[in-house]
Every structure is written in structure tokens, then in C-alpha cells.
Amino acid sequence: NKFNKEMRNAYWEILHLPNLNEEQKNAFIQSLYDDPSQSANLLAEAKKLNDAQA
């Protein structure tokens, strides 16, 4: 299933973003579980936030 793979990839990438705190990571990961079809968008948002907090 495409979403499972996308979701897993997004999950791991978000988990390893160095500039997000636990609360931010948890919020993105919760959103992933709530709507796996948004994995790519959530990952993009997480990366933007990560870069902004660098």
C-alpha cells in the first residue's frame, strides 16, 4: 500500500529532523496517523519548520 510506505518514510524522516523538539515531532507524527494521505505534505511542512529553526 502506497500510503503505508509514504507514511513510514515520512515518519522516519520527521523523527530524525535535528531542529524539531519532541512536541513538534509528536504533532507531525500524530497528523501522519490521522491522515496518511497527507504524508508528503506533512513531511514538507516538517522540513520547512526544521529549516526555519536551524
Rank of each mutant, 00 (worst) to 15 (best):
N1G: 14
N1F: 00
N1R: 02
N1D: 14
K2H: 14
K2W: 15
K2R: 10
K2I: 14
F3R: 15
F3D: 15
F3T: 15
F3V: 15
F3P: 15
N4L: 08
K5Y: 01
K5D: 13
E6R: 02
E6M: 05
E6K: 02
M7E: 14
M7I: 06
M7D: 01
R8Y: 15
R8W: 15
R8Q: 13
N9W: 12
A10Q: 01
A10I: 03
A10H: 02
A10F: 02
A10V: 03
A10D: 01
A10T: 11
Y11K: 03
Y11P: 00
Y11W: 12
Y11T: 02
Y11G: 02
Y11M: 13
W12M: 02
W12K: 02
E13Y: 07
E13K: 14
E13Q: 14
E13G: 14
E13M: 11
E13P: 01
E13W: 08
E13H: 14
I14M: 07
I14T: 02
I14Q: 00
L15F: 07
L15V: 12
L15Q: 05
L15T: 04
H16I: 03
H16V: 03
H16Q: 04
H16A: 07
H16D: 03
H16K: 07
L17W: 02
L17K: 04
L17Q: 10
L17G: 01
P18R: 14
P18T: 09
P18A: 05
P18F: 06
P18Q: 07
P18L: 09
P18I: 10
N19Q: 06
N19Y: 12
N19G: 05
L20F: 04
L20K: 00
L20I: 12
L20T: 00
N21E: 14
N21P: 10
N21F: 12
N21S: 14
N21M: 13
N21I: 11
N21R: 12
E22L: 08
E23W: 10
E23A: 12
E23I: 11
E23R: 11
Q24I: 03
Q24Y: 05
Q24T: 08
Q24K: 07
Q24D: 09
Q24S: 12
K25T: 12
N26M: 13
N26K: 13
N26I: 13
N26S: 12
N26R: 14
A27I: 10
A27L: 08
A27Q: 14
A27M: 12
A27E: 11
F28A: 08
F28H: 07
F28E: 00
F28M: 05
F28N: 02
I29P: 00
I29E: 04
I29R: 06
I29T: 04
I29N: 02
I29H: 05
I29M: 05
Q30H: 14
Q30W: 07
Q30E: 11
Q30G: 07
Q30K: 14
Q30M: 14
Q30T: 12
S31E: 14
S31M: 07
S31H: 15
S31K: 08
S31Y: 15
S31F: 12
L32K: 00
L32A: 01
L32Y: 00
L32T: 01
L32D: 00
Y33I: 06
Y33E: 03
Y33L: 11
Y33N: 01
Y33A: 01
D34L: 12
D34K: 10
D35N: 05
D35I: 07
D35R: 12
D35Y: 05
P36T: 05
P36D: 01
P36A: 08
P36Q: 06
S37A: 11
S37I: 10
S37W: 10
S37T: 08
Q38F: 10
Q38A: 06
Q38G: 07
Q38D: 06
Q38I: 11
Q38R: 09
Q38L: 09
Q38N: 08
S39K: 05
S39H: 13
S39W: 15
A40S: 08
A40Y: 15
A40L: 10
A40M: 13
N41E: 05
L42D: 06
L42I: 11
L42Q: 04
L42N: 09
L42R: 11
L43K: 11
L43Q: 11
L43Y: 06
L43A: 07
A44M: 13
A44F: 14
A44W: 05
A44P: 05
A44S: 06
E45T: 11
E45G: 03
E45L: 07
E45K: 12
E45W: 13
E45R: 07
A46Q: 00
A46K: 00
A46N: 00
A46R: 00
A46E: 00
K47M: 04
K47A: 05
K47H: 10
K47D: 02
K47G: 04
K47I: 13
K47P: 00
K47W: 06
K48F: 06
K48N: 10
K48M: 12
K48R: 09
K48D: 14
K48T: 06
K48I: 10
L49Q: 13
L49Y: 09
L49V: 12
L49S: 08
N50S: 07
N50F: 02
N50K: 04
N50M: 02
N50E: 05
D51H: 11
D51V: 07
D51N: 10
D51Q: 12
D51F: 11
A52L: 08
A52V: 09
A52Q: 09
A52P: 05
A52N: 15
Q53N: 12
Q53P: 09
A54M: 12
A54Q: 14
A54L: 08
A54R: 06
A54G: 09
A54E: 03
